[in-house]
Design a protein around this nucleic acid. Structure first.
Lengths: 246, 246
DNA sequence: TGTACATCAGTGAACGCGCGTTCACTGATGTAC
DNA sequence: TGTACATCAGTGAACGCGCGTTCACTGATGTAC
């Protein structure tokens, strides 16, 4: 039996349905139900937000008694974690795919597609975006499981930055950059295969800056202030590329 | 009777206790109670977040039956609105006071103190910050009352930008800035007393950029990524000042 | 200055609602021999 | 191939909780004459 991707405790794939001999109808049904519940949960999240997400409402919509959901998720928090990991992964793969479509040597094109992919995804799934980049859900503590999924967008940006650096295009350090670099040293030493600390600072700030604009747009701070947020975002992209030496 | 500041429908001050003849003990007691309830509400907000803010819990803590709260706030939403306006006003006056301390001609000093004041306030009152700059409270619709309070920080930044422009220091337009300017035209025409549109774009982006970093710090996105967020923020301030010609 | 009346803060009970989670159960599906 | 047993998805009732809001009321405070 060869499945790929994430698996749960029992070794069942959490992504695609299991197939082939040795896989029972019961097991296939379970996977289908789990996917259905997640789909409903995702939709509810998009309608009422994370704080108001209700197991009973999900069960009701699936036509099942509320306790039945506990066969699939041990608690509401576990379900939330699943949704958070899923949202990070969806944004991550959306960004990865967009960036992969561009020629490796086209640094400007790669940066543009990363930046636009973040905004496009956030506008398409505002509640999912709020779940992972908005104010923390009260009473919910993110477990370790979310970390690797959360890092995917950052990784894409970092690898791009590394290529820019290797091509000799990235800017050199300024005093202000040097001052900030020690504060992100742990990250730099983990990821920084030959990339200087000041570039890691620059990359994290690009990421923070893009999300600043996207959050303001998605959360409504631009209401009556910025009418054409697309053009505004393109301006930020342009500035960022200048700054990164592109 | 001379009171200043915001007043409620009955002409009572919502800020300071009324004094002098013609003000009854009952009225003073009412104002005291209202202030007590708001103080408790503010603290609960800081502990459980906006979505979980409960009128009953506030009443309980004040030692009063839950229906009594309705003598002061017609509904939970009205109370939330009060808290939101209050948070905007507190951040606004914190920033205004910080900026006013600096010599008018010291543009760098003025920008730095605005930027630092935003972050300081957000770190001191993270839930209040989340209330006004985080994901929207589900089911809550902000009424018009919040607009003028919400604009105070932006105004400070804009007036600073105007002074910079009048001193001949602000940068001239780039093609990317020109492209974005029409999208913020409404704001520019309202505020732009002789300040060109591209500067308004620049100012709004400064504001968005600062909040991007502050939000990431307050909402925990910098966990294990940026250890010294103070130094990181100083770097952003420095970059912004370069960009604004300071 | 005293009295009759009006105001209104706070009470206590109730309505109707939804929530997460537990638990003993039934009956269909799967497995070992 | 058939049978006895094990697994386990879904049931239905219950526990115990908290919520926002309404309403008729009481009794203290304030006001007009």
């Amino acid at each position: 039996m060869t499945t790929s991707g994430p698996v749960d405790d029992a070794g069942r794939s959490t992504v695609a349905p299991s197939v082939g001999p040795g896989v029972t109808a019961r097991q296939r049904a379970r996977e289908q139900t789990e996917r259905d519940l997640l789909r409903i949960a995702r939709r509810h999240l998009g309608e009422v937000g994370a704080a108001a997400l209700s197991l009973r409402a999900i069960a009701r919509e699936h036509g099942v008694v509320s306790s039945a959901v506990y066969r699939y998720f041990p608690s509401r928090d576990e379900l939330l974690t699943r949704l958070i990991v899923e949202a990070f992964d969806e944004l991550g793969s959306h960004v990865e795919r967009a960036e992969a479509r561009v020629s490796r040597k086209d640094f400007r094109g790669r940066f543009e597609s990363v930046a636009r992919a973040i905004r496009d995804w956030a506008l398409a799934y505002p509640h999912q975006y709020a779940l992972i980049y908005g104010s923390p859900v009260p009473g919910y503590v993110a477990p370790q499981d979310t970390v690797s999924s959360a890092a995917r967008v950052g990784n894409v940006l970092f690898l791009l930055l590394r290529d820019v650096w290797n091509a000799g295009l990235a800017p050199s350090a300024t005093p202000a950059l040097e001052d900030a670099a020690p504060g992100v040293a742990a990250f730099a030493s983990g990821y920084g295969q030959g990339v200087p600390g000041h570039l890691v600072v620059l990359g994290i700030e690009s990421w923070s800056r893009l999300h600043g604009a996207v959050s303001f747009e998605v959360f409504g701070q631009f209401n009556k202030l910025v009418e054409d947020s697309g053009a505004f975002y393109e301006f930020i992209i342009d500035e960022e590329m200048h700054r990164l030496g592109l």
